[in-house]
Amino acid sequence: MSFDKENQQPPIEVSASDISPEALHGIIENFILREGTDYGREEAAFETKFKQIKKQLDNGDVKIVFDPNTETVGIVTKTEWQRMQKKK
């Protein structure tokens, strides 16, 4: 994969319902385990974090996004997604 700044493609929102339960679990797990993820003053258990992210996905507060330029998938806040849309 070569990086061509001029031919960058915009990120694509992916609906959680379009992803297998196993893949969705992996995406959420990866997001939780990423270094630097902040959950406030007190550290929460993995299962608690997982439920919080799943609920945020269900409520539309966070989005699953595929970046075709890097071929990666991540979770971003609704605000981050709106900023990405403005850059198009």
Results as ranks from 00 to 15, higher is better:
residue 11 P to N: 06
residue 11 P to A: 00
residue 12 I to V: 15
residue 13 E to F: 13
residue 13 E to I: 12
residue 15 S to E: 09
residue 15 S to K: 11
residue 16 A to I: 00
residue 16 A to E: 11
residue 16 A to T: 07
residue 17 S to I: 06
residue 18 D to S: 07
residue 19 I to A: 05
residue 20 S to N: 03
residue 22 E to L: 02
residue 22 E to D: 11
residue 24 L to P: 13
residue 25 H to A: 12
residue 26 G to W: 14
residue 26 G to L: 12
residue 26 G to A: 00
residue 28 I to R: 02
residue 28 I to D: 03
residue 29 E to G: 03
residue 29 E to L: 09
residue 30 N to S: 10
residue 31 F to H: 06
residue 32 I to M: 10
residue 32 I to Y: 08
residue 34 R to M: 08
residue 34 R to W: 09
residue 35 E to K: 15
residue 36 G to H: 02
residue 36 G to T: 02
residue 37 T to C: 06
residue 37 T to R: 14
residue 37 T to F: 03
residue 38 D to W: 01
residue 40 G to T: 02
residue 41 R to K: 12
residue 41 R to M: 03
residue 42 E to S: 01
residue 42 E to P: 02
residue 43 E to F: 01
residue 44 A to T: 04
residue 44 A to N: 11
residue 45 A to P: 10
residue 46 F to Y: 15
residue 48 T to N: 06
residue 49 K to I: 01
residue 49 K to E: 07
residue 51 K to N: 11
residue 51 K to M: 02
residue 52 Q to H: 03
residue 53 I to R: 06
residue 53 I to T: 04
residue 54 K to Y: 05
residue 54 K to I: 01
residue 55 K to W: 08
residue 55 K to Q: 13
residue 55 K to R: 15
residue 56 Q to K: 11
residue 57 L to D: 02
residue 57 L to W: 07
residue 58 D to G: 08
residue 60 G to T: 14
residue 61 D to M: 15
residue 61 D to S: 15
residue 63 K to A: 03
residue 63 K to R: 12
residue 63 K to Q: 11
residue 64 I to Q: 07
residue 64 I to T: 07
residue 65 V to D: 10
residue 65 V to F: 07
residue 66 F to E: 12
residue 68 P to G: 03
residue 68 P to E: 03
residue 69 N to P: 14
residue 72 T to C: 02
residue 73 V to S: 12
residue 74 G to N: 15
residue 74 G to F: 08
residue 78 K to A: 12
residue 78 K to I: 12
residue 78 K to N: 15
residue 79 T to W: 09
residue 79 T to V: 03
residue 80 E to C: 11
residue 80 E to V: 09
residue 82 Q to I: 04
residue 82 Q to Y: 13
residue 82 Q to G: 01
